[in-house]
Every structure is written in C-alpha cells, then in structure tokens.
C-alpha cells in the first residue's frame, strides 16, 4: 500500500471528514459499477455503494494489508450486492407466485433484456452473459470491465488463481460457442 493511501486510511479511522470524502471520491465509481454489474439496476447499485462505504468505514480498523484496499472494498461491495440480489429474487419469486395464483402474468422482460442496446453483437453478448450465471459472469466482468488481474480477482472472489483462470476460460468458451460465427462478420 502506498504511503498516501495508508495516510488516507489512518485519517479516515481518526474520523477526518475531508479524508472520508476523499476516499469515497476516489473509489465511488469503481464500487458503483461493480454493484451495477451484479444488480443491473442503477438505483439499487447506488444504495449498495452507499452501504458499502458505511460498512467499510465502520470496519476500517479491521482492514489488514494482506489484500489490497481496493480488493477489500470490492469484496464488501460484492457481499452487499449479492445480499440485495437474494432479497430481490425472493421478492420476485413471491410476486410471481401471487400473480400466477390470480392468473395475472406480468410480461415484464428481465433486467438484462430490457437494457439491450440496438446493436446485434451487444445484444447477443448480453443474452449469452445472462445465460452464464454469476459464477462465470463475475470473473469476466471483473477482468474485462474493471481490468483486474487474475491475482486481484482471486482476492476479491476469495478463490484460488487457478480457479479464476478456469472460470474465465469456461466463461469465454461458453460465450464463444453461443456467439459462434458472429465475430467473423462483425468483429474487428
């Protein structure tokens, strides 16, 4: 950890409000976009970001330098986002059961379907990513959106580097077979 980062964290522990604002300013975009990539909803991602900083600031004393500060912060973001996702899924299941009971089926498309942009490759990629499931999608998002190294992804997801590599390989293979033929004509 750099001296500047260590100083900033120490000041935050002391309760220095300027330092806290600085820490939030520095990491808010990354945290927000990670939450967004898990939750797929900007409003919920904003709340998860807010909760992440509340939790991180209250637990800052327990942060140990065995992992990078960013990886530690992102682990908190993932835990809180997943917890929100579970809550939302439970509510959606309840809603589905109730609407099915009264034979009122809402035809609302899934979140990822809603956000498909009018580009064929992007649309196909989103569908394929949605099919992957979180286990293989998250490492891909951390690698190709957040530009994390294999070591950092392993730290964030609390898995071994070999497992990260295998999840990325499986993710890429599945996307490749789902999108077979698409990149030859439209890729760079």
């Amino acid at each position: 950890m750099s001296e500047e980062q260590a100083g900033l964290i120490a000041a935050c522990i002391e309760g220095d409000e300027t330092a806290i604002a600085q820490l939030i300013q520095k990491h808010q975009l990354g945290v927000f976009r990670l939450a967004l990539s898990v939750l797929g909803d900007s409003g919920e991602a904003n709340e998860a970001t807010q909760d992440t900083f509340i939790a991180a600031l209250s637990a800052l004393k327990s942060y140990q330098e065995s992992s990078t500060f960013k990886a530690w912060l992102y682990t908190i973001t993932l835990n809180l986002s997943r917890s929100r996702l579970r809550k939302r899924k439970a509510l959606e299941r309840l809603q589905y059961t109730l609407t099915a009971f009264f034979r009122v089926h809402s035809q609302r498309p899934s979140t990822l379907e809603e956000i498909i942009i009018g580009n064929e490759v992007d649309a196909a990629l989103w569908q394929a990513l949605e099919k992957l499931g979180e286990k293989h999608r998250l490492p891909l998002v951390l690698r190709y959106y957040h530009d994390f190294s294999i070591k950092e992804i392993a730290e964030i997801l609390k898995i071994k580097e070999g497992t990260v590599h295998s999840r990325l390989s499986i993710g890429r293979e599945r996307l490749r077979s789902e999108l077979d033929g698409l990149f030859q004509t439209t890729g760079e």
Binding site: S37, A45, F53, N119, L175
Partner: peptide, 23 residues
C-alpha cells in the same frame, strides 16, 4: 474478437451510469 466486443459491450452499457451518493 470476443474479448474486444465484450469490453466494448460492458463499457457501452455501464459507462453512462454514475453514482449519486449522499455523503
């Protein structure tokens, strides 16, 4: 090609959003 398109799709989709936190 897959990697390039994946990066592009993710950035196109999410880069437009920004956090609006209550400090």
């Amino acid at each position: 090609g897959l990697e390039a398109n994946l990066r592009k799709a993710l950035h196109t989709r999410w880069d437009t959003y920004h956090p609006n936190l209550n400090l």
